[in-house]
Design a protein around this nucleic acid. Structure first.
Lengths: 341, 341
DNA sequence: GTATTAACTTTTCGCGCGTAAAATTTACAT
DNA sequence: ATGTAAATTTTACGCGCGAAAAGTTAATAC
C-alpha cells in the first residue's frame, strides 16, 4: 500500500511530515533531533526504506564520515588482520572505512593518498611503507588530513603514531633465548624497508651486550615483500656457509622466520628446544600463521588489538580536535613460547 | 607564476580556453575529444594540477567508473592475493576498484552489497560467502548491478561465474596419491560453508571409486574461518582416534592441511613421502603459505591469475553489454608435488 | 504568566558536475 | 567552392543534498 519508492529527502519530508533540513540533520546525527521527531522519521524510514545519496551528501559536507585505512601490503596476514580490526572499530564509531593497500609500491602509496584527498576523509589511518615512502608526499598529506600513523613511524609525522616498542621486543626475547640456551644470532633483511627492523636490530645488539654476549648479525639480500622466500633462500645460504655462529637464530620478523624454518627443513635440521634438535629459531610479531608452523614458532606477540584500538581512539580525538598536537604510544610485546625455541 | 589553485571545471575552462562541457567529456574519455583540444587541456592540467570532484561526478553520472570487489575474508591470504590481482586489472581497465571483506559474516555481506548500491558501481566482482550468504539478497543485487561471481558459485547467479574445476582438482590429486602410495582418506569440514567443498568431496569419491578404492571421509566439527585451528584440533582428534584408515590424508583445502600438519607435529608423526615418514598429507588450493610449511605441502594449485583475468574480462563484457546472458568458466588445477605427499 | 532555551521550519542559496538540444565551428573529401 | 560529418560551444536545466539566517513552536524555569 503506497510503498512507492522514495528517491530523495524531499519525498521523505513529505511522507514523514518533517522538513527536509531536519531530516538532513537526523542523518548527520540521529540524536540531534527531538525524540518524537526521530520516531516519526524512523517510522517513515521503515516503510519506505530510503537511504540518502552518498555523493550528494559528501559533495557538500565540509567533513565526511569517510575514513581511509591504508596498509603497505594487504596480502600480509598481519596487515589483513589489523585492517579488519580497524575497520570494525571505525564502523562502531559511526564512520565509513575504506581499505587501501599500497602493495609495496611507493608510487601506489602516493596515488592512494592523492585519491584519498578527493574523498574528503574525516581522517586516515596510515601504515606507511616506511623508508620507501615518498616522505614529502606523506608529510603534505598529514598536513591536510588528520592522519594517524601506525605500525611504521615516519619521524613525528601525523597526529599520532601508534606502534610497538620494538627494542623491548628484541630485549625480551633475547633474554629468554639466553637463559634457555645459547645466545642468539640475529637474522634480518640487509636493507629493510620497515623502520621497525632497525630498532629491532639495535634492541638485539643492546640486549646482547648487556648480557655480556657478542652480537652476531646475518643480513639477507633481497627486497620486496616476499619475506618467506627471502628467509628460505638467504637462510639456506647462511646455513650452508655456517654463518650462524650459535645454534639459536632470532629473526627480525616472523615471516623471515617462517622462511628460515623451511630452509632448515630442506637442510634436514631439526628445529626446536628439545635435546636432539640442531637449531632454535625465533621470530617477532606473532604472525597469524606462526602458531601453525612446524614446529610452532616462538615469538613476541604484537598487541594487535591494543594497537588498533588506540589508533582509532587517537584518530577520533584528532578528528574532533580534542587530541594533542602529536602523541606516540608504543605497546609492549608478549613473549609467546612455542616449540621452535 | 599564476599557479592559483583551480577548484572546478569552470575555472579550468577559462584558463584552457575550452568549454566546460568539452572538458567534462575529456574526463570521461580523453580520446573522445579532438587531439589538439586534448593537448590544450592536458597542458592546462599540468600547470594547475586539477582533479575533478568525484562526488559531483558520480552524482550525475548514470554509470560511474566504480567497481566493487567483495571477498568473504580478507585475512585469508588466498583472497588477499586474488583481490590484489583483481584490483590491478580493474585499474588497468580504467576503473576505480574498492575492496570489501565480508569477514565471514552474512549480515556484513548483505550490508556491503547495500552500501555498494549507493556507490552506483559499473560492476561488482563478488566472491560470496557461499551457503551462508543471504541468497535472495545476492540475487536481488545481481539483478540491479552487473555482477561477476568468482571462487564460490551460487546457482547461476550473476552475469558470470569464474572459478576452479573442483572435481578435477580432487580427481587429479587422488590419482597422484594412489599411484605414489596408499589411497587417501579425505579430511574436510563437516559443514563447509563453501560450495566448492561439496564438489571436492564428490570428486574425491568418484575418483576413488573409479580407481577401485573405498572412499573414507573424516569430517571436522566447527564453523567459521579459522580453518588452520579447526584442522589442528579436529585433525588431532582424528589422529588420536585412528580415524584415518590409510597413511595418506587429502584435505579439502590447504588451510585445513596446514592445521593437520601442526597436529601431526604435536603427535610426533613424521609427514612426507620418504620411507621413514608415518603419514602423507596433501591439500588443495596452493595457498601462498603452502610452499613454506614443513614439509612443504603437496597440493593442487588454483590458477589465481587466470581466474582474476577471466573475471575482469567477463565483468568488462557485462558492463559494456557485449557479454552473454550468463557464462561459466572453470579452470583446471595444476598438481604441485612437494614433500608432504 | 513571562522569559529562556532548544528544537524545528521555512526560505534561499550554492556545490561541481552531467546531460541534452540547438547552434556553431572545424576538418576533410568531393 | 561546396557539402557533410564530426567536434565543439552555447544555453539551459537538474541532481540531491548541506548550510546559513530568520522566524516559529514547544519544553523548561522562575
Amino acid at each position: 500500500m503506497g510503498d512507492d519508492k522514495i528517491r530523495n529527502m524531499d519525498q521523505l519530508a513529505v511522507v514523514s511530515g518533517i522538513s527536509r533540513p531536519t531530516i538532513s540533520k537526523y542523518f548527520q546525527d540521529p540524536t540531534s533531533v527531538r525524540v518524537s521527531t526521530r520516531q516519526r522519521i524512523e517510522a517513515a524510514l521503515e516503510q519506505y526504506d530510503y537511504r540518502p545519496n552518498i555523493f550528494a551528501m559528501n559533495q557538500n559536507r565540509k567533513l565526511t564520515k569517510n575514513v581511509g585505512i591504508v596498509v603497505p601490503y594487504i596480502a600480509d596476514p598481519f596487515f589483513a588482520e589489523i585492517a579488519r580490526n580497524l575497520e570494525q572499530r571505525c564502523v562502531d564509531a559511526g564512520f565509513q572505512p575504506t581499505l587501501f593497500s599500497s602493495h609495496g609500491s611507493p608510487e601506489l602509496e602516493r596515488e592512494i593518498l592523492n585519491n584519498l584527498r578527493l574523498l574528503k576523509p574525516a581522517g586516515v589511518l596510515l601504515a606507511p611503507l616506511g623508508r620507501a615512502s615518498d616522505q614529502s608526499a606523506v608529510e603534505a598529506f598529514c598536513v591536510d588530513v588528520p592522519t594517524v600513523l601506525f605500525d611504521s613511524e615516519i619521524q613525528g609525522l601525523g597526529r599520532a603514531y601508534i606502534g610497538s616498542d620494538n627494542p623491548q621486543f628484541s630485549t625480551q626475547i633475547v633474554e629468554y633465548l639466553c637463559r634457555s640456551g645459547e645466545p642468539p644470532c640475529f637474522f634480518e633483511m640487509k636493507n629493510p624497508s620497515n623502520p621497525n627492523a632497525m630498532k629491532r636490530r639495535q634492541g638485539y645488539i643492546d640486549a646482547m651486550e648487556k648480557l655480556g654476549h657478542t652480537p652476531s648479525i646475518v643480513g639477507a639480500e633481497g627486497s620486496g615483500w616476499e619475506f618467506e622466500e627471502i628467509g628460505r633462500l638467504e637462510g639456506g645460504k647462511a646455513l650452508a656457509s655456517n654463518l650462524f655462529t650459535t645454534n639459536t637464530v632470532l629473526c627480525s620478523n616472523d615471516r623471515l622466520a617462517i622462511g628460515l624454518l623451511t630452509a632448515c627443513y630442506e637442510f634436514k635440521l631439526q628445529v626446536g628446544r628439545s635435546h636432539d634438535a640442531a637449531i632454535r629459531v625465533a621470530g617477532q610479531d606473532d604472525h597469524p600463521f606462526s602458531r601453525f608452523t612446524c614446529p610452532p614458532l616462538t615469538t613476541i606477540a604484537q598487541d594487535y588489538d591494543a594497537i588498533a584500538g588506540r589508533s582509532v581512539e587517537a584518530l577520533l580525538r584528532a578528528i574532533d580536535g580534542t587530541g594533542a598536537e602529536h602523541e606516540t604510544k608504543l605497546f609492549h610485546g608478549r613473549l609467546v613460547v612455542r616449540d621452535s625455541a
